[in-house]
């Protein structure tokens, strides 16, 4: 009994240590965001002498925070919704039909091979295409692009998962009179909850943090998301770290709130996926 308690204490101490290591960068960011420039110059670890709320006020003003936040939300969440809908349907079709129809097998390979293409190679053709379609500097265009570049990986994840789901339930649904779409949305899709949660969580994080695509396709200040606004605080020869960290904290905040609010579902989904796997 006593040994078990000692083990528990060590486990807790170890977890605290790990937590400390993981939270340390965020702690430094938070600390620095409240310091004046002269305080930052003196020591990175010291506590702020006066809480420089000015950093946050200036960061909000300079980055046009509310507009950028609205843009980030308008880009991220519709993209993730589209990714989930399209990839789950695509993944389901590929998983179920690739054995019988070669075209699905080739599509699967095409999707996987497209993961190898870096965005830099696509940049000029995409830019030209978007310019001629008048999609440059539009949130709709950005949603389409992010969905397009993300679908391949998400589909790849869905294909693997759908293969592990027994066909019998769908077959029963089809016998009971369901069409293929109803069978998918009513019977199969709820069973994809674990992988859907994983795909959604990963893509919320990736798309929220996207910098390169936004930088190329969103050149007007009024449509730029939060991540692209960050560089305003880093000049070629001078950087304002207090303000930069204040902006970073503000940028992180919505995602942190989202993850905290959705934590229960995310953990459920991911652990559900683990059991199923």
């Amino acid at each position: 009994m006593r040994e078990k308690r000692i083990v528990n204490v060590f486990q807790i101490l170890f977890l605290l240590l790990v937590m400390f290591v993981f939270l340390f960068p965020s702690y430094i960011a938070l600390l620095t965001s409240w310091k004046t420039r002269i305080e930052v110059s003196r020591s990175a670890l010291s506590f702020p002498e006066t809480f420089a709320i000015q950093n946050y006020i200036e960061a909000i003003r300079k980055s046009q925070f509310l507009t950028a936040l609205k843009n980030s939300c308008a880009i991220t969440f519709p993209s993730v919704l589209l990714i989930v809908i399209c990839s789950s349907m695509g993944g389901y079709s590929i998983a179920r039909h690739s054995a019988k129809h070669k075209i699905f097998k080739y599509l699967d390979r095409l999707y996987v091979s497209s993961l190898m293409i870096p965005f830099q190679i696509l940049m000029i053709p995409v830019y030209r295409m978007y310019k001629s379609l008048r999609l440059l500097n539009t949130l709709q265009g950005m949603v389409l692009m992010l969905t397009g570049v993300s679908i391949a990986y998400a589909t790849f994840l869905y294909v693997g998962f759908v293969k592990s789901i027994p066909r019998e339930l769908e077959e029963a649904a089809l016998i009971d009179g369901c069409g293929p779409y109803k069978a998918f949305f009513v019977i199969v899709f709820p069973m994809l909850k674990p992988i859907t949660t994983t795909v959604a969580a990963l893509h919320v994080m990736w798309l929220w943090n996207d910098f390169n695509i936004s930088l190329v396709l969103m050149q007007k200040e009024s449509v730029r998301p939060l991540t692209v606004k960050q560089y305003y605080f880093f000049g070629q020869y001078a950087s304002d770290y207090g303000m930069a960290f204040a902006a970073a904290i503000l940028t992180m905040l919505p995602v942190v709130i989202f993850f905290m609010a959705a934590q229960k579902y995310l953990v459920e989904g991911i652990s559900g996926g683990a059991v199923k796997g």
Binding site: A74, L136, N137, L139, Q140, L144, M218
Partner: peptide, 20 residues
Amino acid sequence: GILPLAGCGNSGEGSGTSGE
């Protein structure tokens, strides 16, 4: 598919001019 896109609303072409 279209609704979320339409929901995004803001077009940069128009707002860019009146933006920053």
